[in-house]
């Protein structure tokens, strides 16, 4: 089991239509970002964890989803703490963590093909502005596949620094990581074309 991978099951969340789940997630994101009530955010967080359990997903799976984002969440917490104080930082941390878990919950309980179809339908109104709905939907789903990939590249960049005697600070590893990601992205896009996606 890895980040965002469909986990078969018969829970109420599995049976819910993909479009409904995506709309719920969008509404959830708006609600979470609008509130700054810490007690309410904690309550929302607990309900998401209950839903996680009902969906038959495990705690190690939860950790797998949150772990790759730990540094980013902590960095944001630190930044907000300095700029706006503790409660604002806690608000940001809780909102983002809850949102990440809710998004993971949706992707673990929805087949990729169902997700693609729902997103394509949802994006159809934007085709009048030149958006290719199928391509845009695929890009969103493809992003899920990239999470473990980006995480692995980041880990390797930090390990490469450690092997050469540098410290564990991840920030200096960002530049080599971004350069390697850009190179790997070229190869991935080539693979997409080779397998029939896109270019005519």
């Amino acid at each position: 089991m890895s980040v965002g991978v469909y986990h078969p099951g018969q829970s109420p969340l599995h049976r819910l239509g993909p479009g409904t789940k995506l709309l719920m997630l969008a509404a959830f994101a708006v609600a979470v970002s609008l509130t700054d009530n810490i007690a309410l955010l904690l309550a929302i967080g607990v309900s998401v964890l209950v839903a996680w359990n009902i969906a038959g997903l495990t705690w190690p799976q939860l950790r797998q989803n949150v772990q790759p984002l730990t540094w980013m969440l902590l960095a944001l917490f630190g930044f907000q703490f300095v700029v706006a104080g503790f409660f604002s930082a806690l608000d940001t941390l809780l909102s983002l963590a809850t949102l990440v878990i809710a998004a993971a919950l949706i992707s673990h309980t929805t087949r990729t093909d169902d997700m693609l179809e729902a997103l394509t339908i949802g994006l159809c109104p934007f085709t009048r502005f030149g958006l290719k709905a199928e391509d845009a939907a695929f890009a969103l789903v493809f992003a899920v596949r990239l999470v473990p990939f980006v995480s692995a590249v980041g880990r390797e960049a930090i390990e490469a620094r450690l092997a050469r005697g540098a410290g564990r600070n991840p920030l200096p590893a960002l530049v080599p990581m971004v350069i390697r990601l850009m190179r790997e992205t070229d190869t991935l896009s080539e693979a997409l074309v080779a397998r029939g996606f896109g270019r005519s």
Partner: peptide
């Protein structure tokens, strides 16, 4: 078939 199979995998499962 690419040299690096990681580069060829494009979907989650």
């Amino acid at each position: 078939v690419f040299q690096n199979p990681d580069a060829q995998i494009v979907m989650p499962t």
